[in-house]
Amino acid sequence: MKTLTMACTTCPASCKLIVKTENGEIVEISGNTCPRGIAFAQKEYTDPERLVTSTVLIEKDGKEFLLPVRTKTPVSKKLVFDVMEDIRKIKVKAPVRVGEVVYENIGNSSCELIACKTVV
C-alpha cells in the first residue's frame, strides 16, 4: 500500500487529502471535508490537470509588451510543457479584450488560450 498526499484545489479551503493506493488503484481517501475532494483525488490520481498561465508578446503602437494569458480550462499535466512551447511562438496585436481567445488548440490540448487583460 502506498500513501500519497494531495492539495485539493477545488476551493480555498485547500484540504490536505491523504490517498491510499494498492496495485495502482485508490483504496482510501481521507482529509476531504466535502464530496468534491473525492472527485478531485480520483482525477488527480488518474489524469491530473493544471491551468497554465504565462505571457505572450503583444504589439501596441509599434512597441512590444507582455500580455498575460491562460488556458481557458485546465489541461492534462502531461501537456503543460507542450503548451508552453506553443506560447513562446505567439505574438498578438492590440486591441485585445480580457477573455478573448488568442490561440486555439494550444499544445494540442484541444484547449483555447485566452487573454487575461484588456489592452486597447
Binding site: L51, T53, S54, R70, V98, C116
Partner: peptide, 26 residues
C-alpha cells in the same frame, strides 16, 4: 501575479491576478 488562484471567494471563480484586477479597472 499572472498565476491563478484569485477570486474564488469574491467572484466564485478562479481568476488570474490581471483578470481579477481588470474587473475593478473596468
Amino acid at each position: 501575479c499572472i498565476h491563478s488562484g484569485f477570486g474564488l471567494q469574491y467572484f466564485n471563480e478562479e481568476l488570474t491576478g490581471p483578470e481579477y484586477a481588470q474587473r475593478f479597472i473596468d
